[in-house]
Design a protein around this nucleic acid. Structure first.
Lengths: 228, 228
DNA sequence: CGTCGAATTGACTGTGCGTCAATAAATTGT
DNA sequence: ACAATTTATTGACGCACAGTCAATTCGACG
């Protein structure tokens, strides 16, 4: 299919060059169609990039769903999601820059309504996967019964996104003495879970053992995992 | 001074139009100098935008410093910083999009070394203001003695940045039922402080009273403050 | 008032997104 | 088999805008 072909090569070039330097003439050459054909499938460059972003996001959703099936206590399952996040960041290092682009208002208004819808659906699915674990945690009593699931999910999204951004920034790395950015992400996730009083708390459980199981069972090929 | 004039009008246009739509011909017309004169002061468009961003950041640093002088327990002072953050977000609603731009690698490499340095210095100063309160908290025993200050600051930067981004996103607002984005930011900051076991914990202190004092003493003119 | 150097200009170049009239390919009708 | 008609594809072109630089204006000083 032509759209898939465009997305395949578009993704490759986008991740290599970033949004600003993505050149549609070059993309046209790569897919061996003309630029006009690209514009039959996508309204604008932004529309194309949103299409690519949604496809990459779909990969992450799948990764999250697999992590959510990790067998263990609810907080261990959420921890597996945290690992999935880091694994995704490693394997799609440059995708975060693109996700940043998506926050810009001027970007969205140049993309087609249909692609905005599809991206929203995909984002919703990721949200559902995380919230499912939170709901389980409340049901089995690992989280206090009055906890509102969406608030927990939102806080986890926030700390994860924020930590990724902050811990990758050279200025902040310097001044905060960051050695391993992904470790920062996972530690901050622990902090928020402890803040919600998600049992078992960090100090009450051997999460190092959990980490080894997650690595073995969910990410057998991951090489980025530092012990700490 | 010419540079100030350029930055003044540049800031106005940048916040009105965003980075992509900032037009240097229009800026030249606004300052009643030619485009060539702009390029005598700034190497590239990115360089100019970084200059503007640093100047806006300087405003935030000043705001933080004022908030840090709030009289009260260490966690109350940190709470004042949290308010400062929200106040800044309200008064520079569009600045966050620009801060997002700064994360993009291709952006930095087009700015001059000197302006990169100045921005780093300014960021460092903001960091110092926050870390100063954390150090005080450890000294007076509001935070556990083994706490590493930079880790606390980093987690607060992360949750604040992440919450701002997440809570502003329409998709996430919908699915998480966000009514007041700034309330989300402050609640998540509470969560992280509780996670560090920063005394007095949320449930052990009348922070609503603190909030009223902060509003009265530091932000007498702020109108965005919702009681909750 | 003339000379020299610094400040300023704005027409010009290059790049790359997006368009659309022209062309090629496929399908249908006879 | 061939013409007519519809659909797919093209790539040269328009245009907006970042960045340049030779020409020009300005101002200081003798």
């Amino acid at each position: 299919m032509r759209e898939e072909l465009i997305l395949d090569h578009g993704q490759r070039l986008l991740l290599r060059d970033g949004y600003q330097n993505l050149n549609l003439d070059e993309l046209a050459k790569a897919i061996e169609y003309s630029k006009g054909t690209i514009y039959l499938q996508f309204e604008t460059k932004e529309d194309l990039v949103l299409g690519i972003a949604t496809r990459v996001l779909k990969e992450r959703t799948r990764l999250f769903e697999r992590a959510a099936r990790f067998e263990g206590r609810t907080r261990e399952r959420m921890r597996a999601i945290g690992f999935a996040c880091c694994d995704f960041a490693v394997n799609h290092r440059d995708y975060f820059n693109i996700e940043m682009m998506l926050k810009s208002a001027s970007f969205w208004e140049k993309a087609s309504a249909e692609r905005r819808r599809l991206h929203g659906i995909q984002a919703g699915q990721t949200f559902q996967t995380v919230t499912g674990i939170v709901v389980d945690a409340i049901r089995v009593g690992d989280l206090p019964p009055e906890t509102r699931p969406a608030d927990v999910t939102l806080s986890l999204i926030s700390i994860t996104m924020g930590s990724h951004i902050a811990a990758m920034e050279p200025d902040i790395q310097m001044v905060c003495g960051v050695k391993d950015p992904l470790l920062v992400v996972r530690r901050n996730q622990d902090l928020v879970c402890d803040g919600w009083n998600w049992k078992p708390l960090l100090r009450d459980w051997d999460y190092a053992a959990t980490d080894r199981r997650i690595k073995a069972e969910i990410f057998p090929t991951a090489t980025w995992l530092n012990e700490a």
